[in-house]
Amino acid sequence: MQYEGVLNKMQTEFNNPIEYYLVFKNNFLNINQILDRTIQIEFVGYECLNCGEHKKIFRQGFCYDCFYKSAEVGDWIMRPELSTAHLGIEDRDLAYESKVQLQPHIVYLALSSDVKVGVTRKTQVPTRWIDQGASKAIEIVEVPNRYLAGITEVALKDTFTDKTNWRKMLQNEIATEDLFAIRESLLDKLPEEVKSYFDTTSNRLLDLNYPVLQYPTKIKSLNLEKTPSFEGKLKGVKGQYLIFEDGTVFNIRTYEGFVVNINIQ
């Protein structure tokens, strides 16, 4: 079987285990169905996810020009406390920013390596947790906009990391912490304007199981620009990573906007 197309982050379906799909323009590939099979990945070129031009990808699937112009990659994406749509202030495109920022957001705790605090739109639950390779996750507060979520995350960064140790996550070295108990201890640490949302937020703990046949003991990352052709036996998927038998891991998210040819043997 052969597939060619532009890489986007894998689409997922919450199941036991999680279902993963690589979706291209004219077809799609169910990753779970090709576990334990040999896959060849060949780098063909670039295609910006924003303008569609065949220009070198700069970051997040965008070419250099689009990365610094598009509202989809403003600074408030990575730093939600910088959101200003609730004040009617534009960063790059107020209509887009209002659509994204002025909707319910979740501040959460996740176990993907250590205990991590993060922010996501409510519509992205549990997709965001799956993309991070979290084994467990729990909501702290649901707030009506991205700014409130952002200042909550900032308030908790002194207590928890906001980054995932991707090596630990892929080797399944997960901290054993009681997220429910930790959540119950956080009320006094929340910003005053957020505390009223604590009791109205769900405290359900979610467990996530990934389709992994073999976790790597030593990890090496596949760099498509340095190694434009790679072949290996697929042993698992976690987060947005493909895991191969020899310990090679391939982060699909890093290579969004890359055109590839995938051959399944």
Rank of each mutant, 00 (worst) to 15 (best):
V119F: 00
L102M: 15
T120Q: 02
D93C: 04
A110G: 06
L148V: 07
P126I: 10
A95T: 15
G88P: 14
V141L: 02
A134L: 08
R92Q: 05
D93S: 05
K99F: 08
A110S: 10
V119W: 00
V115P: 04
G88K: 15
A134S: 15
Q124T: 03
W129M: 11
I130S: 10
K99D: 09
Q132H: 12
G118C: 00
I140E: 01
I89N: 09
L102R: 11
Y108G: 01
T127R: 14
S112K: 02
W129T: 15
V119C: 08
I138P: 00
S112G: 05
P144S: 06
L109F: 03
N145F: 10
V143N: 05
Q124I: 01
V107Q: 01
R121M: 04
H105M: 11
V125E: 09
L111G: 01
V141T: 03
L102D: 08
L111Q: 07
Q132S: 01
V117M: 05
L102W: 12
S112V: 02
V107S: 02
L109W: 02
V125G: 01
S98K: 15
S98P: 06
V117L: 03
N145S: 04
A137S: 13
K136T: 06
P144F: 04
T123S: 14
D93M: 10
T123Q: 09
G133P: 05
L102K: 09
R121I: 00
T127A: 08
D91E: 14
I89P: 07
V117S: 03
A137W: 09
Q103K: 11
V119N: 03
D131N: 14
S112A: 15
S113Y: 03
Q103P: 06
Q124N: 15
D91K: 15
V125S: 12
V143S: 05
A95P: 05
Q124V: 01
I106E: 04
D93L: 10
E142Y: 00
I130D: 12
V107A: 03
D131T: 11
R146P: 13
S112C: 11
L111K: 10
P126A: 10
E139Q: 07
K136A: 06
W129E: 14
I138K: 09
L111T: 07
K122H: 03
S113A: 13
V115M: 03
G133N: 08
H105V: 12
Q101K: 06
V143I: 01
P104S: 04
R121N: 04
Q132Y: 12
Q103W: 00
K136P: 01
I130V: 15
D131F: 09
I130T: 13
G88D: 14
E90Y: 07
V115Q: 03
L87N: 09
Y108C: 00
K116L: 05
E90K: 15
L87K: 15
G133V: 03
H105D: 11
A137I: 11
Q124K: 14
R128E: 04
L148I: 06
Q103H: 02
D114Q: 11
T120A: 05
A95R: 14
Y147H: 14
K136G: 02
V117N: 07
Q101S: 13
I106F: 00
L87F: 13
R121D: 00
V141G: 02
A137M: 11
E97D: 11
H105I: 06
T123V: 10
L87T: 07
A110V: 08
L94P: 10
